[in-house]
Design a binder for these strands. Structure first.
Lengths: 216, 216
DNA sequence: GCCCGTATCAACCAAACGGTTGACTCCAGG
DNA sequence: CCTGGAGTCAACCGTTTGGTTGATACGGGC
């Protein structure tokens, strides 16, 4: 069996070095290119294709400090022809991240704190055209199918976003051209679905589940 | 000059491998031990000391998946005798994280996405007993001095962090062993300094200014 | 020694929020 | 056609929060 040729995409030099060291230590693995963010990754893929050099799998981080993020990059890569398999390797395993990655065409989702052997197996599977989910991720997806978490409506997410900017009920009512009563109704539904009982906790939970994004 | 002997503390095998590879590539650097979290780190230090093997610097992550977190570990390490310098190497550069680390006795604060050369220099400085701040961190602190933005006290930042988890005044009072009256006083000061007039807005502004970290 | 910032607490009142009940419309799906 | 979810609104009431005033205590700095 021939060598598995890998492109690393991660904005942290330390992580790239770690993956390079770890993968190079495995028999039959070879890191042939690296990129700090999505746009550079696409350039690397095209460069390799132009040179006729094969590429078997892209190892992609989701969170990039600057430049094109991992989900966008994955979508762009899957639009190429031929499109190499993209294996997501990231720090967080939130529903939103996982679903976005799968929707973008990723063929696997691994966590950075996984033991080396798990990462090795996932890369091998991805290179072979199979899907590879981290055990934690697989368990979460199965649990979600069995026990679907309540989904916020678009209006509720909208409220939540305004809420996170620190607006009062009155302000949100004005902003959305609805009455304070309606705002309160929505809030009650939101608290209900998130399992909390006040606005501050709602923002906390929503941020943790990455339903909304807070901060810079 | 003799070799700089390093202990790595990080819960991600990938990151440890990266740091090991990166540091081993530099002349005069040697990773002599590793630990996935704080308690194991302290055991490693004591083991080295028992064997009479020197240790010049501890490279410490702040966020650990399980076990003793980085701030607690740093505090514990600085209570040892002799206490090796602790250089924080983490992903986030929020005020809360930085202040907690410095307060715990860290002699430096670097970011994981820093270029290798910067990390090399910081480790060297820390090993030499000097302090080493990442340029981004240093710039933030300097900018704060030039721009006399109201500075939150440590107690106020502490409160803000609890606030961001969705706790009520009563809960925060219990948590911090103070009265609700004191909590309210602190909150008023916080609102004042952040230019807001309620808790939700305070969290929003604090997250944007990276005074605290929300989510994940 | 005095001042100022930090931290602590109490009492009070007004305003905002949280929770409930009930009701109306619209629209998609069985 | 009827049911159910989403979205809208009103009225009520108890609790929490926000704002103020005033007070004590401790430390560092001029």
């Amino acid at each position: 069996m021939s060598e598995i040729r890998i492109l690393l995409v991660d904005d942290h030099p330390v992580v790239r070095a770690g993956l390079r060291a770890m993968l190079s230590g495995f028999e039959g693995f070879s890191v042939v290119a690296e990129a700090p963010e999505g746009a550079a990754a696409i350039r690397e893929i095209q460069r390799l294709q132009t040179l006729g050099e094969p590429l078997d799998v892209v190892l992609m981080d989701l969170q990039m400090g600057a430049g094109m993020d991992g989900v966008t990059a994955t979508r762009a890569i899957k639009a190429l022809s031929p499109a190499p398999p993209v294996l997501i390797l990231t720090t967080y395993d939130t529903d939103a991240d996982i679903l976005a990655a799968v929707e973008a065409g990723a063929s696997g989702y691994m966590l950075k704190d996984a033991p080396p052997e798990q990462i090795r197996a996932a890369v091998q599977q991805a290179a072979a055209g199979q899907t590879a989910l981290a055990p934690e991720v697989a368990a979460r997806l199965l649990g979600r199918i069995r026990n679907p978490e309540p989904v916020l409506s678009t209006r509720e997410v909208q409220l939540l976003e305004l809420l996170a900017t620190g607006m009062s009920n009155k302000s949100m009512a004005r902003q959305l051209f609805i009455s304070e009563a309606t705002v309160k109704t929505h809030l009650v539904h939101i608290y209900d679905k998130l399992g909390v009982d006040n606005r501050t906790a709602a923002i906390s939970v929503a941020a943790q589940r990455r339903i909304i994004r807070t901060g810079g």
